[in-house]
Amino acid sequence: MATDFEKKKKQQQVVQYDISMYKRGDLLEVPRTFFTHFGIYLGNNCVAHLIPDIMPVLTTEKNALEKMVNNNRLMLGVIAKKAGVRVDLVEDFAYGAEILVNHMDKVCIRSPFEGEEVVKRAEKLLSVVYSLLWYNCEHYVMYCRYGTSMSIQTYQVRFFRREKGSKISSL
């Protein structure tokens, strides 16, 4: 019987992405179970995305660093507050999920930069200090595309916690 990981891997291999839909500088969103992951399309089937990863703390071996980040590496990266900007193929970035293109254009007041400027900003920020709440993949792409570092997801989490806390304390 196949494990969940094997089923997911098989599903990932079946999904084909029409990269002709994407332009350099597009903001790509991939819905996940508990959050949305964000990246910037660089062209040539490549996406730059900020992702937590413990591996650079443990080794400088290029082969180990280039392997896809698994959940253990990701979670340990979150705990250690270590992340890096990776450039991966669209398929590896999406991991079998649907990709939304420039969805944030509808909610951001600022106009996006031109595609080449977005790509230049994305490629310039290869090393950043990571924080799940204060600087994550959404902050990264928002800075690259709109010039402002913000995360709607973490704002909602912080606002929800504050609201929940105030209700409890007022009882």
Rank of each mutant, 00 (worst) to 15 (best):
F160Q: 10
V141M: 08
K164W: 13
D105Y: 14
K8D: 13
D4S: 13
C108I: 15
N45A: 13
L125C: 06
A2I: 01
K10H: 06
K82W: 01
Q16R: 05
Q11R: 09
K106M: 15
Y17K: 00
M21Y: 10
G115F: 09
Y17N: 02
A64H: 04
K10N: 03
S169N: 13
T3N: 04
V87T: 13
F35H: 07
T60I: 06
A64G: 00
C46K: 04
M55P: 00
K81H: 05
M21R: 15
P31G: 03
T3C: 06
K167E: 11
V15W: 00
Y155H: 12
T36H: 10
Y17V: 06
D18F: 10
G84K: 08
G43T: 09
F160N: 11
L133K: 09
Q16F: 04
I19E: 12
N102I: 02
K7I: 15
D105C: 08
N44F: 05
V107I: 15
K164Q: 11
R73T: 00
A83M: 03
V90Q: 02
F160A: 15
L76N: 06
L58A: 07
V87H: 06
K164S: 15
Y95W: 10
N136V: 07
V118L: 09
I109G: 00
Q153L: 07
D4W: 09
G147I: 08
K8W: 14
M1V: 12
F159C: 13
I19F: 06
V90P: 09
K67D: 09
R110S: 15
R24S: 10
Y155S: 12
V157A: 14
M142Y: 06
K120E: 13
M142P: 00
Y140T: 10
G147T: 07
S149T: 05
T148S: 11
Y17D: 01
T59R: 09
V118R: 01
V30A: 14
C46M: 08
A2Y: 01
K106R: 15
G84T: 08
Q156C: 15
K106H: 07
F5K: 10
M104Q: 13
Q153H: 10
G96W: 03
R162E: 11
G77H: 00
N72A: 12
N71Q: 11
V129I: 10
Q12M: 11
I168H: 01
L74H: 05
R73N: 04
D18G: 11
L132G: 04
E117M: 05
E163W: 15
Y135M: 01
D18K: 12
S20C: 01
Y22K: 10
T60N: 14
A94Y: 03
K124L: 15
D26K: 04
Y155K: 14
F160R: 12
E66L: 11
L76G: 02
I54D: 02
H139G: 02
I54W: 01
K23E: 14
S149N: 09
R121G: 05
A2N: 01
R161Q: 12
N102M: 07
K67C: 12
I99M: 02
E123P: 01
I152N: 05
